[in-house]
Structure formats: C-alpha cells, structure tokens
C-alpha cells in the first residue's frame, strides 16, 4: 500500500508540475523559466539528499562528476527546456503525453546502444505509443 501511495504522489507531482509550469510561462521566456525552475529544484533536491543520504556524498570521486554532468545536460538542460517549450507552445494536455513517450526512446536506445533484446510485448507497446502520438498530433 505504501508503494502505491508513493507512486500516486509521484504521478500527481509530475502532473501538477506541468500545470504550474504552464501558468508560470504565460508571462516569461521559456529559457529563463527553465533556469529559475532548475535553481529551485536543485536547492530542494540537495536539501533532501543532504538530510537523508549525507554519507554517500563523501564516497563520491571526481570522475563521477562526468556522469552527473552528462545526466544533467540530457535530463535538465535539454530535457526540461524542451519539455517546457512543448508545454508553452501546445499546452499541457498535448505536450505531457508526448513527453511521456520517453520510455519508448529509452528502450530504443537500450536496444541500439546497449544491445538489449526486444520482445513481442515491446513491439505491441511501440505500436500503441505510435498510434497514441498520431491521435494527439491530429487532434484539434
């Protein structure tokens, strides 16, 4: 039950985040909005991780920073900026499901770059996601 509750909070957190973003971006530039939002997220996340997992910080080495930098560029510099741009241009209802296809891209990259084996279930999933994208982009 605890797991389900946390999963529901996660889903409603991401859902509400998109709506807050849309309201905030009505009056400012998307790039500036993304920078300010990232600033707040960084402060909040560092506070939580320092409060709960401070012992892990001392184990970090300098080369680990390269991994964090790469993750930061793809997830936040690029990912969040494009996500906010999508919300700003086509709205929450159309942008959020499209951004939600990231699992599809993650799977494609895992198959192409990490050599993971695709299964028939993945094929059905890809087909459904593609039809879903068509439905959203064709809707008025």
């Amino acid at each position: 039950m605890t797991g389900i509750l946390f999963a529901l909070i996660a889903a409603s957190g991401w859902g509400s985040s998109a709506v807050f973003t849309k309201i905030a971006l009505e009056k400012i530039d998307t790039r500036l909005g993304t920078i300010v939002s990232l600033f707040f997220s960084t402060i909040v996340m560092f506070t939580i991780s320092l409060a709960t997992q401070i012992d892990h910080f001392s184990k970090l080495k300098m080369p680990d920073m390269i991994w964090f930098f790469a993750a930061g560029v793809f997830t936040f510099s690029l990912g969040r900026l494009l996500n906010y741009t999508g919300i700003s241009f086509v709205g929450v209802s159309k942008s959020t499901p499209l951004v939600g296809t990231s699992t599809l891209f993650a799977t494609i990259f895992a198959i192409l770059l990490l050599g993971e084996k695709p299964s028939p279930l993945i094929g059905i999933g890809v087909l459904l996601v593609t039809i879903g994208i068509i439905f959203i982009t064709k809707s008025k």
Binding site: G86, L104, A106
Partner: peptide, 26 residues
Amino acid sequence: NILFGYLASLGAACSYGVSANLAKSI
C-alpha cells in the same frame, strides 16, 4: 508554433530516453 511544440515535446522525450540509460549506469 504547433509543429514546434510537438517536436520540442518529442525532443524532450528523446532526451529523457538517453538520460534513463545514463541513470541506469549511474
């Protein structure tokens, strides 16, 4: 603008897809 919005959303999904694989390694 609408096309740009769709492409940006799918670009974000693509970027998150790369980062999911990075996250797994991290």
